[in-house]
Amino acid sequence: MMPKDHSLESRARIEKDCQGKSCRVICDQDLLALADILNVPLHQMYLQSMEKGILPLRYLRNMPSITLKEQIILQTSQVAVVGAGGLGGRIIEGLSRLGVGTLHIFDPDLFDETNLNRQIFADQNTLGTPKVEVMQECCRLINPAVRITAHRIAVKDQNQDALFADVQVIVDALDTPGDRLTLAAIAGKCRLPLVHGTVAGFGGRVMVIHPLDGRMEMLYGGQETACSAEHQLGTPVLSPALIASFQMMAVLNLLLGKNQATDSRMIYADLEKPSLDLFEL
């Protein structure tokens, strides 16, 4: 007998997660078709499905590290990523795969040849193209249930706080001290946590900066007479890939309200040694 209804349930099937536990799943193709038939936005279709206990198949391998309940929280979350370079590109790609429902991405630059050593989405075809527009298009193909707003602008003014009105977390993936201080001031004004990351050589740092805690000033404030480490060591692909993952973990913890007691320590990781250290600042 043909299924006469266009319900999510009729398209769901049973799969086992990696622990062998059965769960109802639905594939992208069915979600796309139902969204079209029912005239519902795709991100809404994903949410409705998960709220009925039917997991989009694309998230099956996230379980049980990310549960269905947590996947719903991610789908309804909004995150801003400021800077779409070595760190930002990987974070935007990763948050799309994780299923963070809405991303606001900011960068005024076009891809150039010096980006090819490390920046995901920098390739022969995208050179000379605006980074945020390339990422918006690529991530739409990776996960069409994620809405990405691409802002081809620099965040350089404390009065740009209205751009962050709807987000829960801001990610600092910038590369200049002055802009990072401005972003911390905006995050403070908006009372939002800021996930700071930076790299030099084969190492890098991650730290969650809480509103007006003054720690970005400790990192970048004052008269800078010294040459910043990345100008002496460069930024090969390994460190942005590593540090972007730590930043994404911090975003997940903040959105899901997990591991909050220890989330404000500074992590410094060095792939070359290798070493991983935690510091209190």
Binding site: G83, G85, G86, L87, G88, A173, L174, D175, T176, P177, R180, G197, T198, V199, A200, G204, R205, L219, Y220, E224, A226, C227, S228, A229, E230, T235, S239, P240, Y268, D277, F279
Partner: peptide
């Protein structure tokens, strides 16, 4: 003791 230079790459 741990000593860091300024780090700002992204």
């Amino acid at each position: 003791v741990g000593i860091f230079p300024p780090i700002g790459g992204g």
